[in-house]
Each structure stands twice: as structure tokens, then as C-alpha cells.
Design a protein around this nucleic acid. Sequence first.
DNA 1: GGGGCTCCTCAGCCCGCCTTCAGGGTGGGG
DNA 2: CCCCACCCTGAAGGCGGGCTGAGGAGCCCC
Lengths: 224, 224
Amino acid sequence: MRVLVVEDEEALAASLARGLEADGFAVDVAHDGVDGLWRAQEVAYDVIVLDLMLPGMNGFQVCRRLREAEVWTPILILTAKDGELDETEALDTGADDYLTKPFSHLVLVARLRALLRRGAPARPAVIEVGDLRLDPAGRRCWRGDVEITLTARELSVLEHLVRHAGQVVSKREILDHVWDDDFEGDPNIVEVYVRYLRKKVDIPFGRASIETVRGSGYRLVADG
Amino acid sequence: MRVLVVEDEEALAASLARGLEADGFAVDVAHDGVDGLWRAQEVAYDVIVLDLMLPGMNGFQVCRRLREAEVWTPILILTAKDGELDETEALDTGADDYLTKPFSHLVLVARLRALLRRGAPARPAVIEVGDLRLDPAGRRCWRGDVEITLTARELSVLEHLVRHAGQVVSKREILDHVWDDDFEGDPNIVEVYVRYLRKKVDIPFGRASIETVRGSGYRLVADG
DNA sequence: GGGGCTCCTCAGCCCGCCTTCAGGGTGGGG
DNA sequence: CCCCACCCTGAAGGCGGGCTGAGGAGCCCC
């Protein structure tokens, strides 16, 4: 099992390396984000331990860049902070687990083994409909090679359509699944968001993937 | 994506709800098994997070009851215990995955997304009569490989004919099934719609699949 | 505090769908 | 052969579902 530790703090890095080696890991250490990013792309590590606070490029950036580069090695983020921000941010950037400093060596190893056990699954759950791609976990979306920036709501609506591609989805259903059930506003909101989506994922590309099924709802199609 | 969290511990429930909402889920919370069971049957959730230790009815019971009630929503069981017993028991009762407390939010979300990914898409119930195909749920219709665009009413009338293919269906019957029972308008409306249908599904293809049975009604035939 | 962004509301408009209606065609029984 | 019931057909109008643009409230970050 080969692990890459990206950690700028010398003492911690050395301690991690020693401990992991004692547990049978083959350990490489990178001391800053740029180096870590490079190594992670060059070598097929089984898992990466990534500190958040790094000189130059921080852990989130490294993580995101790796995923953008189609590197799906499981990543465990180390963070000194404890805020919720880190947690959600880590998820957004595609990390697989995270650990708050200080942590026990045993816990770290347990988490790493858990990640390894899960094996390849870090692979993104990208859903494709024609050349429209959606990564619900990463909250990202593409038409072909062009990335499309969507807001949270837009993405949720599109996610629901994509997950039911080819089927008719009623406005009521979208409302129930994407909005909270205590939403008492204008159901017209669904039409509005469909319009937003069409403006972003269809019209600029001359497509018509979100069909209106009058009286029933909407249907997402491949639209070759 | 709509998720039901069944968890009696207030703090954990609130934290789960907040976290999941931050990840774009629409979250409902039930604080005991009975409430959870009821909600899960009333609302079409995409996934259910179910604690084992619940007042009144425990997670296993809820799970079993749901499956007995033909509710197939993916269920992820939360357990404080660590025994293998729980795992096999959970799977026996029809749960889809389980997670041992304490767990990281990231892991929970990853597991939920995995469940959603697995979620089986609704199977298409396509009815065929000769080379005429109808997908009532998808609101679509084909003659051979050619898709035919039908309005809601047209499709409803055709659906009734297709479901009784080969039999004579009276106009009164069509009226009662396709229109509201209290429809007091001109029964001629049925003739009008049969005409519309013939213009779309028969005439362009040189077919005559909707036969008139004078004095009785209409009959849909294969019309090889 | 202000600018930008996201989310939501609202009202007006337009087109397509549903329905009605009247007139013409057709077939069967006397 | 004639008549009447039954069915077909074309046109027209009203209505409602869906679309659209503008704008305001809340939020976050600078």
C-alpha cells in the first residue's frame, strides 16, 4: 500500500511517515501543495493524506486540481480547524474523508484502511445523458467539454431530471424533491428554474434537452 | 434529492439535517419509529437514514414494515453497536447499507450517494399493439420507430383503446374513463378525438388500426 | 454598507389544447 | 328507394398551462 503524505510541518510529516511505515505502508512525503499535486499525478498512490494548511497551494486546491486531472485516488484531508466550512468544502472538492488535528495514529490508520477497503469507489458518480454530464457530489456540470456553472438550486433541479432521464417528471414531484415540504410558495418556481437551466445548458449550445410535456411535467432527453 | 432521517436523539438529528441540507438534500426528520414509518409511506423519499435505537418501534421493525408495505426506498441504517449481528440483521430486514456511529459526515454522504446511484430507474411499461407502441407513464407513442406527438387527451383516449385492444369499446366507456365522471358536455367529443388519433397514428402510415363498430363504439386492432 | 449573487414572487402574454357546433356523408332497415 | 340514426369533418373560440421579464428580499464577502 503506497501512501502520499502532503504535510509541510517537518516534525508531523516525519512522525506520520515513521508511523505509517511501521504499519506496513510505503510512504512518500511532499512538503508543499505544488509538489504534492505533481507527485500524486506521477505516481499511482493507493491513498493520499493531505494537510489543509500548506504553503503556496492549500489542500482544497490540491484536491480539486487532482479531481480535475481525473486522479481518483482516495484522499483523506487533515485539518486543524474544526469548522463546518471545512467539512462541506472538502466534500465539494472531492475528498473522501477528513480528520481533525490532533488525531491518534490508530484512528488515522483505521480511516486509511477504511478508504482502501472501499477501494476504487472514490470514482465520481457522474451521470451522463447524451453529452450532458453531471457530478452531483462535486456539484459540477458539463456540456461536452465545457463546464457549466450552476447554482445550488439549479443543480438540484437538474440532478432530479438527470436521475429520471427519459421519464416525465411532474412539477409537483420536482417541488417535493428539491424544495422542502414546508415550501408554500408559488409552484411557478419550477418553471422559473427550468428556464434558468435551459438558458445555461441548452440555449447556448443550440440544444433542447429539457422537454416540456404539457399537462404532465418535464422530460430530460439525450438530444443528440 | 429528498431524504428522511429517523433519529430520536435531538442533537444528532439536527446536525444530520443541517449537514445534509448543506449538501443539497431536502431533509425531513422523524423522531420515532412510528412517525418514520408513517412518513416513509406517505412521501416518496429518495433515501431513508434510519437509526436502530428508537423509542417505541426500533429500526429493524420499521425497515421490515416498510418492505412489507412494498416501499422500496433505499434505507441506510445507523447503529451505535459494532457487532456483526446488526449488519446481517439489517440486511435481512431489507436495509441497503449500514453505518456505525460515530461516522464522518463525508462518509455518510458518500454512502447515501452510492445508494441513490444504485437506485433502480422505473421500468418502462410499454404496451404494444402491432407496431404501435405506447408508454403511458412516459407520455410517449410510436408507430414503428417513428415517435408520434400526442396531446394529453389524445394519449389518454389511445391508452384506453390500447388497453382493450381487440375489444369493442363504447363511446360512453371512453367518456367515463378519460373524462371526469361528471362530464356533461357533448359526447361527440369522443368522435373528435378518434379523428385526431387517426390523423396522427393511422393516416400518415396508411393504416386503419382504429375501427368503427357502428352502433357500439371503436376497436383497436393490430392492422398488420 | 454596498455590490454581487442567489432565490423567489408576480403579472402579463401567448400559444396550444380542448371543446363546441353545424353541416355533410354513410349505411342499414323498412 | 328513402329515411333516419349514426358517424365524420372542418372551423372557430375560449381558456388555461406554461413562458418570460422585471424586480425585490436575503445573504455573503469585500
